[in-house]
Design a protein around this nucleic acid. Structure first.
Lengths: 221, 221
DNA sequence: GCCAGTTTCAAACAAATGTTTTATTCTCCT
DNA sequence: AGGAGAATAAAACATTTGTTTGAAACTGGC
């Protein structure tokens, strides 16, 4: 995070992430961003051409930093079994999405990603290829290793989506979750606890899916 | 769904749901809504005072219709066991969120709800009390019935969120899911298949959580 | 010391957009 | 038929907002 005396370009990039995340692309105005970055309005267009390009740069910066600060194998022993790899994957996802050091939880950049999932901007296509798809593939192999056998794409991909869905939902629906639940402040303790829960829940889910897959006797429709 | 010859007010309400869902509140302009509803711009302000009130009316209408068309006990036998009640709950949620008769999946009103989860509008507060919270409480009792014993709020509420999270994620991230997965068109067959998957996955998750809860021997930190 | 290139600044521009106004048409009751 | 109230239409208004412009200030190298 750029300090108070960082260059104008860095300050803009940093502040824009916060404001885009909080307000969304359309509601965030370059005037507000400029004021928060202590910069003239024209400086934004000078350094980033236009608002949309600035947004693209922010998106790339946010993903790059998020994945390098919290890689999917965070705190993982080199010889860890697939269950522990899943645990690390989920925990990294929680920290990346919600911790202050990551995408900042409720008020911060996490919502920027949430918004992209709901309606992706043009700049998101590159993010998909560079970050999301490799991340999905990693989870795919972890699940395959846990199961031991391939249940086929009709079961495997939903496993991926169910696991990612849980992680993402906590982050993207946090404004509502805070209203219908409690204890969801993104403190380190809560993130660890929730990640642990989602891990166990998902292990149970994977086991159940595997069990049902290898009991094809019930209904051979 | 109001027919071609419905009253102007009905046409506006109907069309506004579609356009708000597709573009979001800020990006949807009353001029576009007016043209699509074959109505003068001023008619919107005449019938709904201002844009924000129109949005509030749309939100209420969307939730009211969604929950009455697909109640959480959809197709459920009166004497069903808690597992079947969970199945119906999840299936109703998928249909409500994604089917054409419901909130219309990808291009339709489903994304309106997704946007509300990410950043709720002032009008959402009432929706929370009238629809979301009772819905959450219903799921709470179902999970309690499945488990048989109360694992405490630290385990119970996350179960709710994990289940709802899976359902919502399929709907709200559908633009991205379509890109990283396949077979996710909201046809009746696919919705049934996915709901069935999420049901099994969640049953496994609940079982695992229950199992871990009643093995408190491992680490009594 | 001076100059080319870079960066910052204030002001203005043009387009979009929610809202209001005023007039006209429609509807229905007596 | 007539008229009061509801509904619709066209135009104008006031703001907001992304972008551009042209000048000023700054920076580093000769």
């Amino acid at each position: 995070m750029p300090s108070y005396n960082a260059s104008a370009k860095e300050r803009i990039l940093d502040v824009a992430g916060e404001i885009f995340g909080e307000k969304g692309f359309k509601n965030a105005t370059i005037r507000v961003i400029a004021r928060a970055a202590r910069v003239n309005i024209a400086a934004i267009n000078y350094h980033f051409r236009d608002k949309e390009s600035l947004y693209g740069a922010v998106l790339e910066e946010v993903f790059s930093q998020g994945f390098s600060r919290f890689p999917a194998n965070m705190d993982l022993a080199p010889d860890a079994d697939p269950q522990q790899r899943l645990r690390a994957f989920i925990r990294a996802m929680f920290y990346r999405l919600q911790s202050c050091e990551g995408w900042g939880g409720i008020a911060g950049r996490g919502r920027l990603i949430a918004r992209e999932l709901v309606d992706p901007s043009p700049a998101f296509e590159a993010i998909l290829d560079r970050y999301i798809k490799p991340h999905r593939d990693l989870l795919l192999t972890i699940i395959l290793d846990i199961m031991g056998t391939d249940p086929g794409p009709r079961k495997l991909m939903p496993c991926v989506l169910s696991i990612i869905g849980q992680c993402v939902y906590y982050a993207m629906a946090s404004p509502v979750i805070r209203r219908i639940s409690i204890d969801n402040a993104p403190t380190e303790e809560n993130l660890d606890r929730l990640a642990e829960f989602v891990w166990l829940f998902s292990l149970g889910g994977i086991a159940k899916i595997k069990e049902e897959t290898h009991l094809p006797s019930k209904e051979a429709v």
